[in-house]
């Protein structure tokens, strides 16, 4: 049990360890620091693939962080840096993929599935409410009454 909690503590403290590795990047202008952090948060590390450039300790991620840091120090803006990365590593490097024909499925797929689901749900609900509202004709009502009476009689006999 103790091992479990120690492990849990270690896992929970991991993100802060990662954040600490970014302390080496200092900016005179605080907004520039925020931009830097935002850029490396939304870039994928190509080595680990499920980590951002900010979170990864892979050597390539360190090199790319340094490269982006140098570019920002030279006064390049966010768009220029994203263009730099995409021209080398492709859209894959972005966690936020741009809207274009090859990514339509990613952007609109969930919406289409949602619409199909809504239509199906709507139709089922409509059919159900329609069945409930169906009124019996006089003849049917008579038959129903007979049946109900019959089943009551049966129960009485059984008891």
């Amino acid at each position: 049990m103790r091992v479990f909690f120690l492990t849990l503590l270690l896992i929970v403290s991991l993100p802060s360890l990662n954040a600490a590795t970014l302390a080496e990047y200092s900016f005179e202008n605080p907004s520039q620091g925020e931009d830097f952090r935002a850029i490396i948060e939304e870039m994928r590390c190509l080595v680990c693939q499920n980590e951002s450039l900010a979170g990864s300790n892979a050597e390539l991620a360190v090199d790319l962080r340094n490269e982006i840091y140098d570019m920002m120090k030279q006064g390049q803006n966010k768009d220029e840096i994203i263009e730099f990365m995409v021209s080398r590593y492709g859209d894959f490097v972005l966690y936020n993929p741009p809207l274009k024909p090859t990514t339509y499925a990613i952007w609109f797929g969930p919406l289409i599935v949602f619409l199909i689901g809504s239509v199906v749900l709507f139709r089922i609900l409509k059919r159900k409410s329609r069945t409930q509202e169906t009124e019996l004709s006089a003849e049917e009502q008579q038959r129903l009454n007979n049946l109900l009476k019959q089943s009551t009689d049966n129960r009485d006999v059984n008891q």
């Binding site: 190509l46 080595v47 390539l60 090199d63 790319l64 490269e67 080398r88 590593y89």
Partner: peptide, 12 residues
């Protein structure tokens, strides 16, 4: 330094 490798989009 791996700078040309970055320009080539090398990731491994």
């Amino acid at each position: 330094k791996g700078r040309t490798a970055i320009d080539l989009g090398v990731y491994g």
